[in-house]
Nucleic acid binder design. Structure first.
Length: 604
RNA sequence: GGUCCGGUAGCUCAGCUGGAUAGAGCAACAGCCUUCUAAGCUGUGGGUCUCGGGUUCGAAUCCCGACCGGAUCACCA
């Protein structure tokens, strides 16, 4: 039983006995005691003021005294108390803290849960998490980086919360945008390949996507100069017509178009694989739009037949969502080709056919909230029971100082470039560390720089509330000091350094009798908060909570480390206890960072 | 215009299921390495929590209304 649970039980018994109040767990408000007061944990007694009809300070005192006199059978937990107005500050006995520390050390599953929300089904509950979902017409940028890191981290966090998680990716490998790069490559590429150009495949294709946009805009300008209005020019520009023609050919299975598509997508995948691998993200199952859109089409046809959808005169198919307070939504174009929504319907169907999914989570930007609202309704109408239940994990955009990133306009922060930069910066900083990094090979130094550089990047992104938009200023480099990934990694590396030098066989006999230093106590109390943090991060889908926790734990440790010596402590039992404390902090830090996909270096 | 999200220190962000004097980091300034890794520690300065009402023992937090910023409402994805 956790400390909070034990205090809650005690407090409930106290108010029952003293005032005959049957309090619920929620009415027992506990919080950490503020540092300016004596004590470790504080009970807020205001909720009982009315019913007890006494002054807050008196109630607090009475409950405190009751607790001292009536502790549970399993030993003395509350040692002392003081009452300040309606706040009952409880001091917990040192023996209790030490026992708790030993329990954490012995628990291989500390901070992991067997089942979600305490509800265990016969089979493990299965959550599918979709993230990344790239288009194969351009390389990954900073927006994708946020998506990938969030998706991966959320999968890890949910696993720790007891879910079986399938990480999945839907690759948008077909459609008009793909045809645009293909067309531009055919027209202007002169047969350029990744090999001939030395470019990464995804970057090569991205260049042609940008090229298409440039030429297309030139055509529009030309047509407008010749007297056409903008709408007409956009619609009738030869390049756009050609791209649309190519899409029709693709859907018709034209061998030449398909062969080109295969070849160019192959280049992109090779590029993506490299980026994913470096970023440290992975997938258990990948779906391709080219394999799912037909399924979606046939579902739309079924919906048409059953009267859920309707066809307009021009042949296009629509869903009327006005009853749900939304608009009418296009599902098939007048030329019969499918849209984004169509493929998502097909993908959902296939996924639920492939896996016994209990919860489907889409990690997709908040700009697509409308899309997922509609998808949920459409799936429901088509008779899929999971339609209503799907979760759109809607995260905020990454913005640059002058606004949103736009691939077509080239105002993006490229994922590969950014990782290069971070690792190079980490390498540069480590050059000053001649003392701690002496004697290591160049290869080891590179590996440390990789972990630290990526750690800085990942933490930078994951520490902000995922629902909020965040700002990235390319002109300012990402920090390696302060509330950062490297700070956590550094704390861990420090501990490892101490542990390497320590005698491994120090006895812990009788450590329960040791009086603790306040810094030691604070550290143990912090360690005890970890499981609840994992729960909260799972409930809220928020890796940021893990970041905040890891930062607080590292701060507590560094303060402890600064004030108290571990290896030079003369008292053998104290030394053993501090080593245990350090070891446990390292274990929990490492475990927390695993949930973020951040690797820990043994030295740095 | 409808819907949704946000507004906290110069900057980037915590805190938001209501609790004690609103916190970090960066930037600025001042200290701490012959002793376990100074990517660290300690301190100083910096705030009308956008504004106005309301709810109550108590509001940055909940409710209502303004103002400002963003997203979205495509035969784009």
């Amino acid at each position: 039983m956790s400390l909070e649970q034990q205090i809650t039980t005690l407090a409930k018994a106290a108010v029952k006995d003293l005032y005959n109040i049957d309090a619920s767990d929620a009415q027992i408000q506990l919080q950490k005691t503020r540092p300016e007061f004596e004590g470790n944990i504080t009970m807020v007694v205001f909720p009982f003021v009315k019913m007890a009809r006494k002054a807050p300070a008196q109630i607090a005192t009475e409950i405190g005294e009751w607790m001292l006199n009536n502790q549970m059978a399993n030993g003395q937990i509350v040692n002392k108390f003081n009452a300040v107005q309606g706040f009952l500050n409880l001091t917990i006995s040192d023996a209790f803290w030490v026992e708790q520390l030993q329990d954490i050390d012995a628990d291989d599953f500390y901070g992991r849960f067997k089942c979600p929300n305490g509800k265990c089904e016969t089979d493990q509950m299965l959550m599918m998490v979709e993230y990344s979902s790239p288009n194969t017409n351009k390389p990954l940028h900073l927006g994708h980086v946020r998506n990938n890191l969030l998706g991966y981290s959320i999968a890890k966090i949910q696993e720790a919360n007891g879910w079986k998680v399938i990480k999945t990716n839907i690759v948008n490998d077909r459609g008009i945008h793909i045809c645009k790069s293909m067309l531009a490559w055919l027209k202007y590429g002169n047969g350029e390949t990744p090999e001939s150009s030395g470019k990464k495949g995804d970057h090569l294709i991205g260049d042609y996507y940008v090229r298409f946009d440039k030429e297309y805009k030139a055509q529009i300008a030309e047509m407008m100069a010749a007297g056409k209005d903008e709408e007409t020019a956009k619609r009738e520009a030869p390049l756009m017509l050609e791209a649309q023609e190519m899409l029709r050919k693709w859907e018709a299975g034209d061998p030449e178009v398909r062969a080109l598509w295969q070849k160019m997508n192959g280049w992109v995948y090779a590029g993506f694989d490299e980026t994913y691998k470096r970023m440290g993200v992975s997938f258990d199952k990948i779906y391709y739009e080219s394999n799912t859109y037909l399924e979606g089409k046939s579902e739309v046809e079924k919906g048409l037949a059953s009267g859920q959808f309707y066809r307009r005169e021009d042949g296009s198919v629509w869903a009327d969502l006005t009853k749900d307070g939304l608009d009418e939504k296009l599902l098939l174009r007048s030329d019969g080709t499918s849209v984004y929504m169509t493929q998502d319907i097909g993908t959902a169907k296939l996924r639920f056919r492939d896996y016994p999914i209990d919860k489907m989570v889409y990690v997709v930007g908040n700009e697509q909230e409308y899309h997922f609202k509609v998808l949920s309704i459409l799936l429901d109408r088509l008779g899929f029971p999971f339609g209503k239940e799907l979760v759109h994990f809607s995260y905020g955009m990454v913005e640059l100082p002058n606004g949103k990133m736009k691939s077509r306009e080239g105002t993006v922060v490229d994922a590969d470039d950014l990782m290069d930069k971070m690792i190079a910066d980490a390498k540069e900083i480590s050059k000053d560390k001649v003392n701690t990094l002496q004697g290591i090979t160049e290869q080891e130094a590179d590996e440390i720089a990789r972990k630290v550089g990526l750690g800085a990047l990942k933490y930078f992104i994951l520490k902000v509330d995922p629902r909020k938009n965040m700002l990235f200023n390319p002109a300012e480099s990402i920090d390696f000091n302060g509330n950062t990934g490297p700070f956590i990694q550094y704390t861990y590396a420090r501990i490892q350094s101490v542990l390497r030098k320590a005698d491994k066989n120090l006895a812990l006999n009788g450590v329960e009798q040791l009086p603790l230093d306040p810094k030691e106590r604070a550290l143990i109390q912090r360690l005890l908060e970890y499981p609840a943090t994992v729960r909260a991060a799972g409930d809220d889908f928020s890796p940021a909570l893990i970041c905040n926790y890891a930062y607080a734990l590292a701060c507590d440790f560094n303060s402890f480390y600064h004030d108290l010596s571990i290896l030079n402590e003369p008292d053998a039992r104290k030394k053993a206890l501090r080593l245990l404390l350090a070891k446990t902090v390292a274990k929990v830090l490492n475990r927390a960072m695993e949930l973020l996909g951040i690797e820990m270096p043994e030295r740095m």
